[in-house]
């Protein structure tokens, strides 16, 4: 009855900001960044990328409560760059990696599709024709 809409777990509400930066008052060059409506998929990915960057002294993330759809990522840098800027850099870097991965995937899929044009017809109609190499039919797929 009064259950919140399930999509509220992953859709930003009207006017809700996707990130909130909480600067650390006690540790220099450190900030905790709250990312809303996101989960481990992004949290762990960012943490790993940040740890691979030389300017980082500390990086860690947590999902404070499994029922609350946000995570916190804590970053401390060596002072040459602000945590927020660094996080932004990390994001851009991962986007680059994924983009190149996407390109390789597209190429690979194209090659596989040519090699396995027959397999596209794996079900049904083609089963009675001799389109399959050897004795294979749709049951083999």
């Amino acid at each position: 009855m009064n259950a919140p809409n399930r999509y509220e777990l992953y859709v930003l509400e009207e006017g809700e900001r996707p990130v909130e930066i909480i600067e650390d008052t006690k540790i220099p060059n450190a900030a905790t960044i709250k990312v809303v409506k996101q989960d481990h998929t992004l949290g762990n990915l960012l943490r790993a990328q940040l740890l691979a960057m030389p300017q980082v002294l500390f990086a860690g993330y947590k999902v404070p409560h499994p029922l609350q759809p946000h995570f916190l990522i804590k970053v401390q840098t060596d002072g040459t760059i602000t945590p927020t800027a660094l996080l932004e850099q990390a994001c851009t870097k991962i986007i680059g990696t994924i983009a190149s991965l996407e390109a390789t995937f597209k190429k690979e899929f194209q090659m596989s599709n040519i090699g396995a044009a027959v397999a596209e017809d794996a079900y049904g109609t083609g089963a009675t024709t001799s389109g399959f190499p050897g004795d294979r039919d749709y049951l083999d797929f």
Partner: peptide
């Protein structure tokens, strides 16, 4: 392919959020 695009979208939205903050 959609999965990879989705992941990029997530990251891009985060970058946007960081810039707007």
């Amino acid at each position: 392919l959609k999965g990879l695009q989705e992941l990029q979208t997530k990251l891009a939205n985060l970058v946007l959020g960081l810039k707007q903050e």
